[in-house]
Design a protein around this nucleic acid. Structure first.
Lengths: 231, 231
DNA sequence: ATAATAGTGTCTGTGAGACATTATGTA
DNA sequence: TACATAATGTCTCACAGACACTATTAT
């Protein structure tokens, strides 16, 4: 059997929070055709010649080699494949949702974070069907945020309730009651996923904030609640 | 750029319920090397030469052409890719969970349903990493069954609470309170996902059963509850 | 003191768990 | 009648929603 005529790639939808707790998307200026010079999702081709032992490894390589980023959370979202998404022919994209801590230093000539909202509204066009991938990854994040602790991976290891609240709301796209979140954090604490450092953080004005620390048991696992935050 | 040296396939984990409400897995005797003659998951290669317009179409083709089956539910689970899963080299498998109604007529020389439990226990070995795919698909089904109406796709369109209960329990692998299920069905009814036909079914002995009808709004959608069935 | 922000308490509603009770059929 | 199976009712508990109230800081 000859090698199959299909182009397989791994693409990354990497998100972080900006200083106003809005989601940002990592984009990269494409070095090669097609769409050379355009901003697009970082990705790599997977084939027998690349050294990756697995798809996961290819995803990690895409982020590490193109952006020198190590995600706090990495999850495969889905694989999209059809005959028209790439002008070169039948192609497959297995795409991942990556969550990276805020203020990662990646600004450069051909690498930057852009507001996710701009992309979703089409004001910042992406080549291929990358907008579709971004949408699906965003929906995955939103749906997981209502019943899991996933948004904590967008924060520094040490965080406050206010920061966590902003992260959940950014992921879900809806307001969340702080009392609800406090209850959930309390449950995560009792199961060892986070802990109260005892430290306090002093905001510009007002009462000092409790500082929590995110300590996921297994790396990149998610704490799952048995209820959805009702919207 | 030459065609990439990667083998891409779509594999199907098709499940149905036997007459004792145990899950069964569809397996197919491989016509070609590698592993010719062994029972394995049905699947097809995807490449530019096959006529599939998309991965979804390839998945449907795999089921239709190899088993003449049309699934009531079809969902992409994930894509597994690495250098060692196929002796021919670096390969990708995008695999789908398919739910088919009971008593579908597919028995044949090189096509049959086998008890899922036998496969999971390793008493019925599968080639490649197919056991791994089956496990992941099974876990996906179990996790969805606790907060959605997915198991109803394993039933005939007309069903009773007892049948539904058996389906949920088979998917979850745990007993479920019939009162809980009745409550959920009532909620699905009020949102139009199922309806009370008014008919009754008379079991061998005992009170007649209400006959419900599964009428999913959008084909293959799932009703989602905002709580998990607490285990 | 006042404003701002963090954190707690209270009441309600929903829906699951557990289990008793009632309903309706067959043998 | 006895028995089997289906369906309902009741009570408790966990937890989200909503919102009032208290606590602790800076200005």
């Amino acid at each position: 059997m000859s090698s199959a005529e299909v182009l397989a790639s791994v693409d990354i939808v990497a998100l972080r929070l900006d200083c106003e707790a809005q989601l940002e998307l990592l984009v990269l200026r494409r070095p090669r055709a097609p769409f050379a010079g355009q901003w697009a999702l970082p990705g790599v081709l997977v084939n027998g010649r690349s050294a990756d032992v697995s798809l996961e490894a290819a995803a990690a390589r895409a982020l590490a080699s193109k952006a020198r980023l190590q995600p706090a959370y990495l999850e495969q979202v889905a694989t999209l494949g059809n005959a028209v998404r790439d002008p070169r022919g039948w192609s497959l994209s297995t795409f991942y949702l990556a969550l990276v801590p805020p203020q990662a230093q990646v600004e450069g000539e051909d690498l930057r974070f852009v507001p996710l909202a701009e992309v979703l509204q089409g004001r910042l066009p992406l080549p291929f069907d990358h907008l579709h991938l971004v949408r699906q990854a965003g929906e995955r994040l939103a749906s997981k945020a209502v019943y899991s602790g996933v948004p904590l991976y967008l924060l520094e290891e040490h965080f406050t309730v206010t920061e966590a609240l902003a992260a959940f709301q950014a992921c879900i796209g809806q307001p969340v009651q702080h009392t609800t979140l406090r209850g959930r954090l309390e449950r995560m604490k009792s199961e060892g996923w986070i802990l109260d450092t005892g430290e306090k953080n002093q905001p510009r004005r007002g009462r000092p904030q409790t500082v929590w620390r995110h300590t996921p048991r297994q790396s990149q696992g998610v704490f799952t609640f048995d209820r959805s935050v009702l919207i």
